[in-house]
Design a protein around this nucleic acid. Structure first.
Lengths: 246, 246
DNA sequence: TCTATTTTGTGTAAAATTTACACATTGTAT
DNA sequence: ATACAATGTGTAAATTTTACACAAAATAGA
């Protein structure tokens, strides 16, 4: 039995009422993920940015992000952004902070969950086809669109702290690396100079670097030994108690 | 000029279309805040819980939370929950993690931002009128409603770590406190025993406890000296570099 | 093939921090 | 006044951190 026009209209109105009440009774917000993707290349810490697609912010750079789909967990959504933009699927990824200021986004209320990701830039290099995406040196990251500067800085500080307590920095290096590369990485992230002997002593004493009995290739000087990270050993021995100190 | 019934209907349909397109084009989610509110009383770390108002979860306890209002920043929303539930407006509050699993809430998709709050239970005691709200000892917190057990445990671990690096634990104590109380607090939070002499030495060397030349009252033994926390001194002297160690 | 150059790789002594541990003092309660 | 209970303090040993210098290995260029 076909609906009369009147019935159709009444049904529409009913549906509208339902949706309206739903919209009004529960305040829903648009939810996005923004990823601060770090890489390490030429002894510099870098971050992957894309040109803004909003007219208001043309010529500004933004973090890589997207809206969360209805059937996506937050971690999954972040993972999908990484996969889509870098082609990499085995990456370090960690939630850092959620930014939800009422007027942080010009298009209305959008709450965003910031993730920090660390990738091995060598693996990734092949996958940058889109010339609107670029690696930027940390020091040159200024004046991002929206509140992305703030998000970036929060994630950078988070990384600086985190890297002192967990071996996540190794995700930025190739599987095989020299101690010099590792030290350069730490110096770049923390923006400090470290004593080479003490740095080595420290890492060897933590005892999860495995000497793989290979050497650097194609370096214009005495090559260094290469190591890999023994994740299992780290998990077994990592310290739980750091002690009260502030 | 009064609208004709037809005009009214057409207007309604138009409005419906607009809302519908808005609702469908951007996937919105309900956003809530959940607060893990810690207190310290009788030498026990406690957390403030409320009985679930959902039939499905009757008899279960939940964290204190609420939906985020359209004009509320996230921090503000958390602050308002604290204020409403405890009457306290000068509390320690920090965002910890956002939980957004697709099916974490029975009523549909609700993403929640978890905050950790520390309050001085003495100040607060007067304000618990609602007998559906109770302080629970940490060890007895099991089987909370929704995913609140997971949220609680995340925040508790966060607190255990955080309290070793920042003086936020002092928010759980009265303004004047003895070193014994401070040590009891740390032992309760970290669930360990500490050496009294070394604990004192450590805190005195950090040098932001001010001896206010008063003593404990009404203790059935020799009273201890009372101290207060010099926030300014802490800010000036807090260490930035902890060193690589994991 | 020799030489200069650059970077790797290693050890030790001093300083600072952390740990383990015991006894005299002060106030309360009986 | 006496027993009790918790405060308050010092030191020696062990560990960790820091500062620092020189020999060995490989490359580059004469």
């Amino acid at each position: 039995m076909a609906e009369s026009p009147k019935e159709t209209v009444q049904k529409s109105i009913k549906t509208f009422k339902v949706i309206q009440s739903e919209v009004q009774s529960i305040n829903r917000v648009a939810l996005s993920i923004d990823c601060v993707i770090f890489g390490f290349d030429e002894n510099k810490l870098k971050v992957l940015l894309i040109r803004s697609d909003l007219k208001k912010f043309q010529n500004k750079w933004t973090l890589l992000g997207d809206l969360v789909k209805p059937d996506e967990d937050l971690d999954t959504s972040a993972y999908n952004i990484l996969k889509k933009r870098t082609g990499l699927s085995d990456v370090y990824l960690d939630q850092v902070h959620t930014f939800g200021e009422v007027s942080r986004h010009p298009a209305g209320r959008v709450v965003t969950v910031a993730y920090c990701s660390l990738i091995n830039i060598q693996h990734h290099r092949l996958n940058i086809l889109d010339n609107e995406i670029h690696w930027h040196e940390i020091d040159n990251v200024t004046d991002l669109a929206f509140d992305h500067q703030k998000i970036f800085e929060t994630c950078y500080r988070w990384l600086q702290k985190r890297v002192q307590e967990h071996p996540l920095g190794l995700s930025l290096l190739p599987n095989k690396f020299s101690l010099r590369e590792l030290q350069n990485l730490y110096e770049a992230i923390l923006s400090i100079k470290l004593d080479r002997r003490n740095f080595r002593k420290k890492f060897f004493s933590m005892d999860f670097l495995v000497d793989i009995d290979e050497q650097e290739q194609n370096v214009p000087h005495r090559p260094g030994r290469l190591y890999k990270f023994d994740y299992e050993k780290y998990e077994r021995n990592k310290k739980k108690w750091s002690g009260i100190d502030f």
